[in-house]
Design a protein around this nucleic acid. Structure first.
Lengths: 184, 184
DNA sequence: AGAATACGTCAGCTTTGTTGACATTCCAAG
DNA sequence: CTTGGAATGTCAACAAAGCTGACGTATTCT
């Protein structure tokens, strides 16, 4: 009840006020109606669908799912990463990841080497075939991202990234920031 | 092979070039490295997780899932929408939607009325309880979105929306644009 | 009258997540 | 050297949420 500020109550005023910032104080003021925020959540919803649509097509052709994509992506990003690392990044249980990882190893897309320093750990690498799939997937996904970036322009891209980064959990932000969560 | 432009090949130059646009032609030129685009896809991945985290907590407390959230959201957005409409927006099969909708009706969150003009259609409305849940969910989600918006600033928000909108499928863009896909 | 549409439902299958239990291997501390 | 705990893997059972296919009913359109 306290946050009942529908766009009808604000009328047309709301949209105009979104763009207005008070730069004198250094602290930017934003007046956000529920309607504007709803539009933002729906933008996320619909855009994420588009974002995954192209890779999903490729994956289903080869009998894989989105979980395989994520695993392949992050192994490609930081080769030699451990299973536990991957679990933390992906936010799934080891059982869930293991099922995906097992099929990828069986199919010869991922390599599984015992750690030299700590032999309990398994270090994960993409094979040739794995790299090929990763490239196909990321090419498809990047094409759309590139098109969106081009359509929106450079300053829009910067804003896009800023908002997304502010929307992450702090914990995930750490994974996002580190290029490599490497090994010894 | 043709798109093998890793960030190492571009070196430090890449990041600087992202921000540079040629505004003289009207057509903005963007030089995007694979690394920059990868950062964008990961931003989407991590941010979407944050985006759904808060509602997910509330939902699981009450024995619902993300699918229920989506249904409740879009019924709230356009009260009286039909089942077929919802199917088109959500991009799921009627069987899948039906399972969710059935529990919502049974639990008294959603109302199901026969269409006046076309009696084959069922129009969907939220009840009091349904509206209460919707508010709890969207409040949680909006809090994060609001915080992200405030942190990023007004121009970032505009860019955020622009990129997301460019990333949608055209078909979904239509649903996104129409405030109300109403009835007679 | 017959075709098409909107909806609901039954049955079965898949992916991807979850718990819980248990074994193995190994590191490190006592 | 023994032992506790960490890292990994695996088995089993289960749930959410998607899918296809088939069928039935009511209604509307042609």
């Amino acid at each position: 009840m306290s946050t009942k500020l529908t766009y009808s109550e604000f009328g047309e005023l709301g949209n105009a006020m979104t763009q207005s910032g008070q730069s004198t104080t250094g602290q930017t003021l934003l007046f956000l109606t529920d309607e504007q925020l709803r539009k933002g959540t729906e933008a996320m919803f619909f855009a994420y669908r588009g974002f995954t649509a192209d890779p999903d097509r490729i994956l289903s052709e080869r009998g894989y799912g989105r979980a395989h994509h994520r695993a392949v992506h992050f192994i490609h990003r930081s080769p030699g990463t451990t299973v536990n690392n991957l679990i933390a990044i992906l936010g799934v249980t080891k059982q869930s990841l293991n099922r995906v990882l097992r099929t990828l190893v069986e199919d010869g897309l991922v390599l599984n080497t015992v750690g030299k320093k700590d032999k309990r750990e398994r270090h994960l690498y993409l094979t040739e075939t794995g790299t090929t799939l990763e490239r196909a997937l990321s090419d498809a996904q990047r094409d759309r991202m590139r098109a969106a970036y081009r359509a929106a322009g450079p300053s829009a891209v910067a804003g896009f990234r800023q908002v997304l980064e502010a929307m992450m959990d702090q914990e995930m932000r750490r994974h996002y920031d580190t290029l490599k969560d490497r090994i010894e």
